[in-house]
Amino acid sequence: MKININGEILEVKNDITVTGLIAFFKLNVKSTAVAVNKEIVPRSGYAKFTLKESDKVDLVTIAPGG
């Protein structure tokens, strides 16, 4: 299925969870936050949160700023 990650379309396996996505991108879970369709997903819910076709996922972290 296709989902939108940080503005880009990506082909992922069906029923991938947020935990699966974090593993796929090899992200450090401690410095990452996730929103799906602009709703924040709490970290405790990553394993149970299954993504659907066309979901818009934001994977965010800290960046330089003032």
Binding site: D58, V60, T61, I62, A63, P64
Partner: peptide
């Protein structure tokens, strides 16, 4: 610091 989408192409991070 700011909070931004992860840049998957970045070679290093803060």
């Amino acid at each position: 610091v700011a909070v931004r989408r992860i840049d998957f192409n970045a070679k290093e991070n803060l």
